[in-house]
């Protein structure tokens, strides 16, 4: 059987809110090492890769590997019934066709359970090579959210260029043009308020803002986001979820017109 208990149930709620617009369905692959998900959007332009470690849960047990096919809008409906302070336990028998979610209030005086019907999903896993990136930028996740939201109101695509001067986001549209530059800034005392640019070589790539804006739905999960860029390769937008694991979004670049 599979059983995973997380005291901060809100994390699970935020996670599913971050994914459900982007991917309709996907398999929760559970094993003794934790829970993983790899799912592409319907146009195969971007991919969500989620990895939650077994030791990040208060309790984790998985007797045999399983792929649990999840419809994310449906999972979201159930998780909306959980309180923000609730502890959430996920449970499934081996080869089950349903996932049980149990919600316990913090003072244990309210316990509810819901069964989510599982789906059978054929999904091919993509092999994502480990690689060195030309530029890795860590910035406050709220800053990333603001930039992509602001630029989405101006244009459809953004040119992201990383140089030793900083990281620059540029767009243009019917309204006009917009440029936002963040400089390497380690002055703030709190690490989560710093902008750290680790540059091996300058790089500039163009991406669809609609997807970058969608990735920002993960902002409530983490104070810091990391962008990884390499010439002619997908961007990685990564949120570390405390000690539990990470969610990474990959987006293929646009070829310059």
């Amino acid at each position: 059987m599979f059983e995973a208990r997380i005291t901060q149930g809100a994390v699970l709620k935020k996670l599913v809110e971050a994914l459900k617009e982007l991917v309709t369905e996907g398999n929760f692959d559970v094993s003794s090492t934790g829970l993983q998900l790899q799912a592409m959007d319907s146009s195969h332009v971007c991919l969500v890769s989620l990895a939650l470690r077994e030791d990040g849960f208060e309790h984790f047990r998985c007797d045999r590997n399983m792929a649990m096919g999840i419809h994310f809008q449906n999972l979201s409906k159930i998780l909306k019934c959980a309180g923000n302070e609730d502890t959430i336990t996920l449970k499934a028998e081996d080869n089950a066709d349903q996932l049980t979610l149990m919600f316990e209030s913090s003072n244990q005086d309210r316990i509810s359970d819901f069964d989510l019907k599982l789906m059978s999903i054929e999904s091919e896993h993509l092999g994502i090579p480990d690689q060195e990136y030309s530029a890795e930028i860590k910035m406050p996740s709220s800053e990333y959210q603001r930039i992509v939201r602001d630029l989405t109101s101006i244009g459809d695509t953004v040119l992201i260029s990383a140089t030793k001067e900083g990281i620059k986001f540029s767009t243009s549209g019917d309204v006009g043009t917009a440029n936002v530059t963040l400089r390497h800034n380690t002055t703030p005392e709190k690490p989560e308020e710093q902008t750290i640019i680790d540059l091996k070589e300058p790089v500039a790539l163009t991406f669809a803002l609609r997807y970058l804006n969608n990735f920002a739905k993960a902002t409530p999960l983490a104070p810091v986001v990391k962008l990884s860029l390499t010439k002619d390769l997908p961007i990685v937008v990564e949120y570390q979820i405390g000690e539990l694991g990470a969610v990474k979004f990959y987006l293929a670049p646009k070829i310059d017109d």
């Binding site: 332009v45 993509l126 293929a252």
Partner: peptide
Amino acid sequence: LPGQQRLTSFFGAA
């Protein structure tokens, strides 16, 4: 979007 590439052009099946 014109010029939008697919992820499958970069990452093969695992």
